[in-house]
Computed example of a mutant assay.
Amino acid sequence: MMENLQPGQKLARGVSRYLRSLGFAPLEEFVPARGLRVDVMALGPKGELWVIECKSSRADYQSDSKWEGYLDWCDRFFWAVDLEFPTELLSDSAGLIIADPYDAEIVRMAPEDKLAPARRKKLVQKFARDAARRLQILRDPRPGADGALVSAPAGEQPDW
Rank of each mutant, 00 (worst) to 15 (best):
K10R: 15
S93P: 05
Y18R: 03
D39R: 01
I137V: 08
A99W: 09
P143F: 00
I52E: 09
R13M: 14
A94N: 01
L19I: 02
L22H: 06
K114V: 11
R13G: 00
P141C: 03
M2N: 14
R120Y: 07
D130T: 15
G23M: 09
P7V: 00
L22T: 06
S21Y: 00
E68Q: 12
G95M: 01
T87S: 11
R17M: 13
G144L: 14
E3H: 10
R17C: 14
T87Y: 01
G44K: 02
G14V: 10
A80W: 02
A25F: 09
R17W: 04
K46N: 14
L96S: 11
P32F: 01
A154M: 07
R142D: 11
M1I: 07
S57R: 06
S21K: 09
D140Q: 10
N4Y: 08
G14M: 07
R37Y: 01
S57D: 05
P86K: 00
G144N: 10
R129F: 13
S91C: 08
Y102M: 13
V40S: 06
D60L: 04
L27S: 06
R13C: 10
R76A: 15
E112V: 13
G95N: 03
A118M: 08
P141I: 05
W160M: 08
D82I: 03
L22I: 00
E112H: 11
K122D: 13
G44P: 02
D159T: 08
D140F: 03
D39S: 14
P143S: 02
K10E: 15
F78I: 00
R108Y: 05
I97P: 01
A104K: 03
R139E: 09
A131T: 10
Y18A: 12
R129G: 06
A59V: 04
Y70F: 13
N4R: 14
K55S: 08
V107L: 11
A116S: 12
W50V: 15
R13L: 15
L11Y: 06
Y102N: 15
L90C: 08
Q6N: 12
R134A: 02
E84Y: 01
Q62M: 10
L22E: 12
Q157C: 02
L90G: 10
W50H: 12
P86L: 09
A152W: 01
D103W: 12
R133A: 04
Y70K: 03
P111C: 04
F85I: 04
L115H: 05
V107K: 09
E53Y: 10
R76I: 10
F85P: 04
V38Q: 05
L135V: 12
F85N: 03
Y70R: 09
E29Q: 13
W67V: 08
L11G: 05
I97Q: 01
D103K: 08
R134D: 11
F127S: 05
